[in-house]
């Protein structure tokens, strides 16, 4: 046998230790910031009486989408209340939506950047591939190492998982805008930034909205897995039911997730359709 061994495991462990050591002030600051976002969001949802949230959500859905979906939202939320999973449901909403928000906050600008530069896109592509194809359990570990158990790690894991579609579809949307449109803007003296702002971004919005939809759905899916590192919410309900072999509890938790998934999916879909029409 040839003597061939790559001590990748050791390298990564040592590397991580060093990185955590040097980065700890920064990590703590980031952690605090994310904590505030997600905690604040969760408190906001849990603070008023349940019925107020139900009505406000239904109204928002009505305004943004349709009355039918608004009815679904109200009934769905009422059901989670009746199933006694209101609190974990709200926790999951807070986690999934703040995860989406952070993903979009980073992902969309990255996508714009990549649309403007072939070099950036070429660098980003393998990284995004890596983020998407890596089994989601694997990056729970570095998340925990950097941020410890808890909602912040969960948020980071969600971000890594949900960001790629936002980046990709933003880049795609902008690059898809017909060359003649871009030429027209440039022919009237628009610079790069103005062309982007006036022409490319507005025309890319339907595609970017598809990215937002994907991003939300992936974030929601990841909340379940992230419950293993303290993400809490409905994922936690499912996780506990697995540990205690409580099929009923698992079904209830699963139902909650399904309700949220349908609601968020239809909502973003309807919004992007509306955007497309205008």
């Amino acid at each position: 046998m040839i003597d061939f061994f790559i001590p990748l495991e050791d390298w990564i462990n040592i590397g991580f230790e060093k990185v955590t050591y040097y980065l700890s002030p920064f990590l703590r600051a980031a952690s605090n910031f994310l904590e505030i976002i997600i905690g604040g969001f969760e408190d906001l949802l849990l603070w008023p009486p349940e019925i107020v949230i139900m009505i406000v959500v239904a109204l928002l859905v009505w305004i943004l989408a349709s009355y039918r979906l608004a009815i679904f939202a109200f009934v769905g939320l009422l059901l989670t209340f009746g199933l006694d999973i209101w609190e974990p449901t709200m926790a999951t909403v807070a986690l999934a939506l703040s995860g989406t928000a952070v993903s979009l906050l980073v992902g969309v600008p990255l996508g714009i950047f990549a649309s403007q530069s072939n070099v950036v896109e070429r660098i980003l592509r393998p990284i995004l591939d890596f983020m998407q194809t890596l089994p989601s359990f694997v990056y729970l570990i570095p998340a925990v190492m950097f941020f410890g158990m808890g909602k912040v790690s969960a948020l980071v894991a969600i971000m890594i998982f949900a960001m790629p579609p936002a980046v990709r579809l933003t880049t795609l949307g902008i690059r898809e805008v017909s060359g003649e449109m871009v030429e027209a803007a440039r022919a009237f003296g628009s610079g790069r930034w103005q062309t982007l702002k006036d022409v490319q971004l507005p025309l890319a919005i339907p595609t970017i909205m598809a990215g937002v939809n994907q991003c939300i759905m992936m974030a929601l899916a990841m909340t379940v897995i992230a419950s293993m590192i303290g993400g809490g919410g409905l994922g936690n309900v499912v996780l506990r039911s697995m540990q205690t072999l409580n099929i009923g509890m698992g079904a209830v938790g699963g139902l909650g997730i399904v309700i949220l998934a349908i609601l968020l999916d239809r909502l973003t879909e309807t919004i992007s359709k509306k955007v497309k029409k205008d």
């Binding site: 449109m181 027209a184 003296g189």
Partner: peptide
Amino acid sequence: RKESVSMVFQNFAIF
């Protein structure tokens, strides 16, 4: 491009 030369396109390129 702003002041002196403007352009009309084959497929209109209207926004």
